[in-house]
Design a protein around this nucleic acid. Structure first.
Lengths: 152, 152
DNA sequence: GGAGATTAGATTACACGACATGTATGTCGT
DNA sequence: ACGACATACATGTCGTGTAATCTAATCTCC
């Protein structure tokens, strides 16, 4: 198997296993990794529109976060209200419960990051991120992440 | 944003964008990346059972390839027939059309691998695969890939 | 040879992810 | 002011991704 092919499958495998780990850790909170991403973004930047949120999401590529957000509003974690200026816009913000949950999410994510750091022991993590950054540069998911890093 | 967090999102972004690229390239053939993975595996090893296939799949983690295979049989790319020895087993094999399609998939994947190699220009690809291999070692998707590499 | 555990596979439920389409609401050129 | 266009969001469809549950065949052990 050529190196590029192995890399392709390794990225797929790593994403799957990482997501599975996070999903299990988040299960007690009753939310999924994608939903956690939304909550964490809303905590960092209050008052985003749906589209503004989509521009920052790596998951779901910002195509249409409506449904993702729908579930969060229906369980009372996110507040949505129509903008006064432009009634097409919808302003999103965390509810108090959403804010509380956000703290728990941070702790769970920290656990994950610690285990990533542990797995990176002896490897050049910076070199890996540099390669991946180059690969996704200019594509939607890469741009979303870049926006997160610079302004986050 | 700490390095581990960026890495997590980079892996997610890379997987998404890579999958999107491959999906677009495969669209003319009328199949998806997951389906292509099944066809390629069946080309390498004729006559697998459903479970045996699942053990080799990085996508869908082998949990229930039934659905995935169902679509391929319904469009006449894969042949399934109950084993004579153990009627719980189902033997899978490519039809002639599936075999033909497999050749086209190989060409499309080669294009993808060439662009991965191009993106890896100036980066230490071996170091990256080594890290990811360590991360998924011992987990289902990692084991599936290991089986593919050794015996494939 | 028969009861119970084990296994293979199918089925189902729920949520994403990608894409296409629909529907208001706003903006701009004339 | 009016119509063409663009924007912001909603909805529908299909194919995964994950886990739980179900059925049936086989194996084990007595």
């Amino acid at each position: 198997m050529r190196p590029a092919e192995e890399l392709r499958y390794l990225i797929l495998a790593a994403q799957r296993e990482g997501n599975r780990l996070l999903a299990q850790a988040l299960r007690p909170l009753g939310i999924t990794p994608s939903q956690a991403e939304v909550i964490r973004i809303l905590q960092d930047r209050q008052s985003l529109t749906l589209n503004g949120l989509g521009d920052l999401l790596v998951c779901e590529s910002g195509n249409s976060p409506s449904r993702l957000v729908d579930r969060l509003t229906s369980v009372g974690l996110v507040d949505r209200q129509v903008s006064a200026h432009d009634r097409r816009h919808i302003e999103l913000s965390l509810t108090e419960e959403g804010l509380r949950l956000s703290q728990q999410i941070i702790e769970i994510e920290d656990d994950l990051y610690r285990s990533i750091d542990a797995a990176a022991e002896g490897h050049d993590l910076a070199a890996i991120t540099a390669f991946l950054r180059a690969f996704v540069a200019g594509r939607p998911a890469g741009e979303a992440l870049a926006r997160r890093i610079t302004a986050g």
